[in-house]
């Protein structure tokens, strides 16, 4: 191959490699369809050299409840942090309301976050503030309101989650389910356009779980929110979600409405949805052959 040919070859390869990044830039100017609130395009992300997402694509329709599901350790929480702009992807982009979240400056990013609520797995309540002050916190920090208006606002939000009577308790006095409801009231305090739920059903008793499931559904419908749900609790997520995404190994394996997913052909999705112990996801962590492993140990002992 001649030198010039090699150069040309390298250039085309370069272009190929860069293509996915450049292409969405063009899309950036094109009007995004109005019914999509969050659009994830070709998302690549790795942490400490370990790839977590390898070209993930997903779109979340406005006004819907979308559940992102997958086994533990597939980076579901990471995905929420990427949507919230707390982490930066290696490649690809995430459009929220038509804006590439990772291209925003600091001030714009914070302005965007005021329109996003997030419910953390642990609740993440501020431990030195009472329930009332926790819900008031994002409002106080982001706006100057007269105390009376603020009080009305906070009580309204607490009423929505049924905890108006618990306003003077401290976070340490709350049960897990109550803490999550307070966190939910706080997440909607700034009247966001969307809420991200990080494992909202984990570690709750059946009654509380039912309460949270109902709350998510109700808030979504009454407040006209868009909800993104990250969970591995198949039944609960499927019961309220309009659309499910199954994520494994950094990619979307399958997606569709809960009814579609029940009938899916994908073996992996079947295993996940039905909770089978063995299938495409093996029961065993990769290991050398069992028998030879045992024999090897015996041989070593003998030697």
């Amino acid at each position: 191959m001649t030198r010039a040919a090699r150069c040309a070859d390298a250039r085309t390869q370069n272009q190929k490699r860069r293509a996915p990044v450049i292409e969405p830039q063009v899309h950036n100017h094109a009007p995004v369809r109005q019914d999509t609130l969050v659009e994830i395009r070709d998302l690549h992300f790795s942490r400490r050299g370990r790839p977590i997402f390898r070209g993930l694509n997903a779109s979340i329709p406005r006004g819907s409840i979308t559940a992102l599901m997958g086994p533990s350790g597939t980076g579901k929480t990471t995905l929420l942090k990427l949507i919230g702009g707390q982490l930066r992807p290696d490649r690809g982009q995430i459009l929220v309301d038509g804006v590439d979240i990772h291209r925003l400056g600091r001030a714009d990013l914070y302005r965007m976050r005021r329109r996003m609520g997030m419910l953390f797995q642990t609740g993440a309540l501020l431990t030195d503030l009472s329930v009332f002050e926790n819900v008031a916190f994002p409002v106080r920090e982001n706006a100057v309101l007269p105390e009376g208006v603020l009080r009305t606002l906070v009580l309204m939000k607490l009423e929505a989650v049924g905890l108006r009577g618990a306003r003077d308790l401290m976070p340490s006095e709350l049960s897990g389910g109550m803490a999550r409801r307070v966190a939910l009231a706080r997440a909607i305090a700034l009247d966001p356009m969307m809420i991200m739920y990080d494992e909202p059903f984990t570690g709750l008793d059946p009654i509380t779980m039912g309460v949270i499931v109902a709350l998510i559904k109700r808030l979504n419908d009454t407040l006209g929110l868009t909800s993104i749900l990250v969970s591995h609790d198949v039944q609960e997520a499927a019961s309220i979600a309009d659309r499910l995404y199954l994520i494994s190994d950094g990619l979307v394996v399958d997606s569709g409405s809960p009814a579609d997913m029940e009938r899916t052909e994908s073996q992996w999705a079947q295993q996940f949805m039905k909770g089978l112990p063995d299938g495409p996801v093996p029961f065993h962590y990769p290991a050398p052959d069992y028998l030879s492993d045992l024999m090897g140990a015996a041989q070593k002992e003998g030697a």
Partner: peptide, 14 residues
């Protein structure tokens, strides 16, 4: 550890 800092960021509080 309890994600309070991360939570603040998501509440648009630095």
């Amino acid at each position: 550890t309890t994600e309070q800092l991360s939570g603040m960021e998501m509440m648009a509080v630095d």
